[in-house]
Amino acid sequence: MKKLIIFDLDGTLLDTSEGIMHCYRKTGEILNLKENTIENKKCVIGGPLKDGFQRLYKIDSESQLENAIATYRSIYQSEGINMFCTYQGIEELLRNLKENGYLLAVATLKAESYAKQMLESAGLSEYFDVIHGWDGTDSCTKAYIITKVIFTLNLISSEAILVGDSEYDAYGADAADVDFLGVSYGFGIKKDEIKSQLSPIADSPEDVLDYIINARLKL
């Protein structure tokens, strides 16, 4: 039986696309980076900044990549962190899950301090038993953060499920040996694109609740 519902942040709880893409664009302009041809630029949201810059821009060297990441973080700290909104229905979802006795947590590749600040500003932090994010090291992966959440709450992987919107979330859940529920209202996962690879997929926060509470997910 599942006891813990772990949520990704970007594209799952909060629509942070405006702030993230603003910081990518501004970094590119400041450093005069050449863009790669990519149709869905928002696919970088929720993933490591290194992957994001390599997907969006022609990066010639490791030093240029490091400079881009440092510039992005500086811009995000002063500008991007305030550019977000909560998806409609999220607070109701969290409230219902808590009322039904679930432990709730956040596992995000965003800096942990930023995640806590944003969830506090959104009025959602009170619902979470644990909020863990990027710890500042290159070895901090999604799987590591998920595992850290489970360890903090003294549970095992079979008692948890990750709710997320991207391939990074799906791969992280698999690596951490945790069940995964994708959401199509976020940035990365589109139901028609990954139907054969990932199942199930929730189209709204209401669907997430339905999958979990009514056992449509076969928890």
Score class of each variant (00 low, 15 high):
165 D>N: 11
215 A>E: 14
215 A>S: 13
143 A>Q: 09
17 S>P: 00
98 K>M: 08
54 Q>K: 15
33 L>R: 11
139 S>K: 13
139 S>W: 05
74 S>G: 13
56 L>P: 08
116 K>Y: 05
1 M>E: 10
216 R>N: 15
132 H>K: 15
96 N>Q: 14
44 V>R: 01
128 F>D: 05
210 D>S: 11
169 D>E: 07
207 D>W: 00
22 H>V: 00
81 I>Y: 06
159 E>R: 09
203 D>F: 01
219 L>A: 09
29 E>K: 14
29 E>S: 11
170 A>L: 05
147 T>E: 06
58 K>W: 01
76 Y>K: 12
191 K>G: 11
154 N>I: 00
109 L>C: 08
17 S>E: 14
143 A>F: 01
118 M>W: 04
33 L>C: 09
166 S>F: 03
200 P>R: 09
71 T>A: 09
95 R>Q: 15
125 S>W: 01
103 L>W: 12
89 G>S: 10
127 Y>M: 07
200 P>T: 09
112 E>H: 08
27 T>S: 13
102 Y>Q: 07
218 K>H: 11
196 S>A: 14
65 L>W: 03
178 V>F: 01
142 K>E: 03
85 C>M: 12
103 L>T: 06
100 N>C: 07
95 R>W: 03
167 E>N: 14
163 V>G: 02
128 F>E: 07
116 K>H: 11
217 L>F: 12
126 E>Q: 15
15 D>F: 02
148 K>V: 00
32 N>F: 08
35 E>F: 04
184 S>M: 08
67 N>M: 14
202 A>V: 03
28 G>T: 06
10 D>P: 00
99 E>L: 11
108 T>A: 03
116 K>G: 09
28 G>N: 06
29 E>Y: 03
75 I>F: 15
217 L>C: 07
21 M>Q: 08
52 G>V: 05
170 A>N: 04
53 F>V: 04
171 Y>A: 12
68 A>Q: 02
193 E>S: 12
78 S>E: 15
208 V>C: 06
180 F>I: 03
98 K>C: 10
118 M>Y: 02
99 E>A: 07
171 Y>V: 14
83 M>A: 12
178 V>M: 03
175 A>Q: 15
55 R>W: 00
63 S>Q: 13
145 I>C: 03
15 D>N: 15
102 Y>M: 09
54 Q>L: 15
165 D>P: 02
37 T>Q: 12
218 K>C: 11
158 S>I: 01
177 D>H: 12
93 L>K: 01
12 T>W: 08
108 T>L: 04
160 A>D: 05
186 G>P: 02
78 S>P: 00
41 K>N: 04
77 Q>D: 14
3 K>W: 00
34 K>N: 14
204 S>M: 06
85 C>P: 00
195 K>Q: 11
113 S>Y: 05
158 S>M: 04
123 G>I: 12
10 D>H: 04
134 W>F: 15
101 G>F: 07
